[in-house]
Amino acid sequence: MNIFRFAGDMTHLISILVLLLKIYATKSCSGISLKTQELYALVFLTRYLDLFTDFISVYNTVMKLVFIASSLAIVWCMRMHRAVRRTYDKELDTFRHYFLIAACFLLSLILNEKFTFQEIFWAFSIYLEAVAILPQLVLLQRSGNVDNLTGQYVFFLGAYRAFYILNWIYRYITEPHFSRWIACVSGIVQTALYADFFYYYFISWKNNAKLQLPA
């Protein structure tokens, strides 16, 4: 494992911890899209089916279990926790995420590494992860104001994507047979979706001002 991959995994983990911190400390999930969180839970559940069939390393197994458990915990909190549920911006979170699920599933039936149950769900999870942030970005755009922890949550998620691209470049150079086109192309699409957010994040950071997205 190279340093970029590790940094990517850690920023991914930090983003989830920041989100959990926001929900537990403020008992509020305002500004957080439940639809994006449900998509991430589905991403992890379908991608890590290999927990039962392939063992890579203790690190991989533990991280997979942490990602599954934390994403389910966040969805549970936003749906079931009485105080947290009240703060959910339901009327702003109207992205039709079922279309994303259907489109990604169709694509995974056509474009996969092998036409098997596990490989189709793996491809599905990669495609779905690439677009899962969309409901969250739409919600932020609509509400305009972004609180600090929510801004940092999306920032760390974007950093995770950026580190994974560096990881692929590194692996492409150092490993003779490295070719993961499905993951790489989807990853680049996913990172590009953050570009706009990053621009405004850095502007606000440079001016030491509150993060605001244009309407």
Binding site: R5, D9, H12, R47, D50, D54, I56, N60, M63, K64, F67, E113, K114, E119, W122, Y164, N167, R180, A183
Partner: peptide
Amino acid sequence: DPQPEVHDEL
């Protein structure tokens, strides 16, 4: 028929 590589990333 090439086998897919093991998915070793998260």
